[in-house]
Amino acid sequence: MQLWAIILDGFREALDRKIFWVLIGLSTMIALAMISISFEEDKITFFFGMADAETGRFNPLSALGRSNVVGLVVYFLLDALLAWVGIVLMVVATAGMFPNFLRHGGVDVVLSKPITRSRLFLYKYLAGLVFVFVQAGYFVVMTFLVMGLRWGVWSPGYLLAAPLLVLLFSYIFCISVLVGVKTRSTVAAVLLTVGAWMLSAMVTQAPQMFEVMPSLKNNTRIYTAIRVLSWIPPKTADFPYVAAKWAGAGTSSDVLPMDFAKTPGGPSSDDLRRAKEIELRELEKNPFYSIGSSLLFEAVILLLAMRTFVRRDY
């Protein structure tokens, strides 16, 4: 009863935020824009045929091409748009949740209820995820339906991107909660969370330096330190590969136009080949390593935040 009450309250709080409706509006616009796209044997048409582009290396109507269509959505919509821009907006939208909750006079009544502080904290945390659950669910279901109904590409595995997005957000949200509980400041929560997120993305991607500078591998200390450090933060950069793997899509390189390497100032063929190799290795990784180690990080951060929440006087 108490869990449901707090979740429902979180949902009501989410509905009250303008940014919630802005994101729903954006998702709807993206879905509508997707409806205007159609695939032919060797090209993609936009705005109901008003413009088109050659697909080059893949035939969207073939079996392989269908997986590439899913790849397009995963890499260019889910990853580039929702998993970055969307999540930054969601961090902004939810950062005030705990500082507002901890306001004097606001938290007093709730703390006087027959619920332990640790349980209250966890329920409130889950309520914070309701916001992103609704957003991610809406976006994924809408795009899933467009892919199926408009393009004839049904990929049930793609639906797993919704809980995956919630997971991805939860890795970052826990930092926001920790900062919010410690400082009771929304601004600090936003800035430090985004900062920590960027830092963790850099640290987890650091081992890729060895691809560019293989000589670094010879220095055992640096190699070990980077390997160990890269294991600690949440693996937010793994998101598109796990989503693509579960949706049955290939690498992002598969969906690039054939003459992409010839673009002036663009990457060379070697660069693209190396990027593809890295992507393939990422796709081969066990998703549960990424999720498990990230959840461990999240659990530690949440325990720290909970400890502060439980021990504080209000």
């Binding site: 004097h104 006079g105 007093d108 009544v109 027959p114």
Partner: peptide, 16 residues
């Protein structure tokens, strides 16, 4: 606590 009612001073309830 379930059998106790409490009104804090300067309370602030969620406006939504």
């Amino acid at each position: 606590l379930a059998a106790t009612g409490y009104l804090p001073e300067n309370h602030s309830f969620p406006g939504y």
